[in-house]
Simulated scan of single mutants.
Amino acid sequence: MAQGPFHGRHALVTGGTRGIGVAIARRLVAEGASVTILGRNAVRAETTAKEIGAAGFAAADVTDRDGLTGAIRAAEERLGGVEILVNNAGSAESSPFLKTPPEQFARMLSVNLDSVVTACHAVLPGMIAAGSGRIVNVASTAGLKGYRYVSAYVAAKHAVVGLTRALALETAESGVTVNAVCPGFADTDLVRESVARIREKTGRSDDEIVADMVRDNPQKRLIDPDEVADCVAWLCGGGARSVTGQSLAVAGGEVM
């Protein structure tokens, strides 16, 4: 494994302690990368890093610009410049638009968009100087289409897709690629926690709730986080050097 295709390359995954993030980190480790797990909770980040064999961990609230930049710099001091950046950290809040206050829009933009901007600002100069690098932003199908009752989240994820396209053009001649993956509802602990909350409020069965979540997915199933990780790994590999500015939906055909 140590001699895999990413051997010797420093990869940093934000939001890497659970769900899709840890699946991506685990896959990059398996491919030989020296992975830094970045999470908000230091104990959880350290524990996750040990469990999957990551090279290190860092703790930061991604909405804290200075804190996030400092954590990335500390990781680079330990393992060298970040050559693969996966911006996975994010969150979603739901409410009808007319009941969505400006503060909710600010929170959604901060965690889902501003964190990506901060991390890219931190690593892009080094990537450009080195003449190579991979940035993958974990967006969502909410970055490609609209959904009811999550207008702030949809706006933020659409912004991530737009940023991805703009950065891809600016870096096209530098050896750096910038892409996004856009999962639909995935089989993660966060989704399962959401299912549990809905069950407590409505009395509906888990199967009914999940069926409602995936009703727009032609395959009628939750996405396996490892499927997203496979997509990210491909985008980070040499075979995808001509793939940039793309937003790849991993959603069973929900978005075409």
Rank of each mutant, 00 (worst) to 15 (best):
A122R: 09
R73D: 15
G67T: 08
C182D: 03
L124V: 14
M213A: 10
C236E: 00
A130D: 00
S95C: 12
G70S: 06
Q246I: 07
G126F: 01
P225A: 06
A152M: 03
V86E: 05
T177A: 00
K157N: 05
E193F: 02
N179Y: 09
T244H: 05
G239P: 11
F57P: 01
A159S: 12
L248W: 15
A106Q: 12
A159N: 08
C231T: 15
G15D: 04
R134P: 00
I128V: 14
R40N: 13
R73V: 09
R44N: 11
A168Y: 07
A11H: 00
V161L: 05
D207I: 14
E51M: 10
V13N: 02
A155Q: 07
H158I: 09
A180R: 09
A129H: 07
S95Q: 11
T188F: 08
V255P: 02
V243T: 07
G146W: 14
G90C: 06
Q219E: 13
E208Y: 11
K145Y: 12
T118N: 10
S242N: 09
A60F: 02
D207K: 14
G8F: 09
A249Y: 06
E193Y: 00
R215G: 01
R215E: 15
A251D: 07
Q246H: 11
G8K: 05
S34E: 08
I84V: 07
G239A: 13
D207V: 15
R26S: 14
V29N: 06
T171V: 11
M213D: 07
R40F: 09
D212W: 04
E46I: 04
L144K: 09
K50R: 15
V191I: 12
A233V: 00
G252H: 01
V117S: 10
A58V: 01
V35C: 03
G16Q: 07
Q219C: 12
T244M: 04
C231N: 10
R148G: 11
R204Q: 08
I135V: 15
I198Y: 06
G184R: 01
L190K: 04
T188L: 05
A60Q: 01
E76T: 02
D187S: 13
F97G: 12
G67D: 10
E227F: 05
V214C: 05
V43G: 12
A71N: 09
R9D: 02
A122M: 06
D206E: 15
A172I: 11
T118L: 04
M127I: 04
E77I: 03
V154P: 00
Q3H: 14
A58M: 03
I37T: 02
T202A: 07
E170A: 06
K157H: 06
A172P: 10
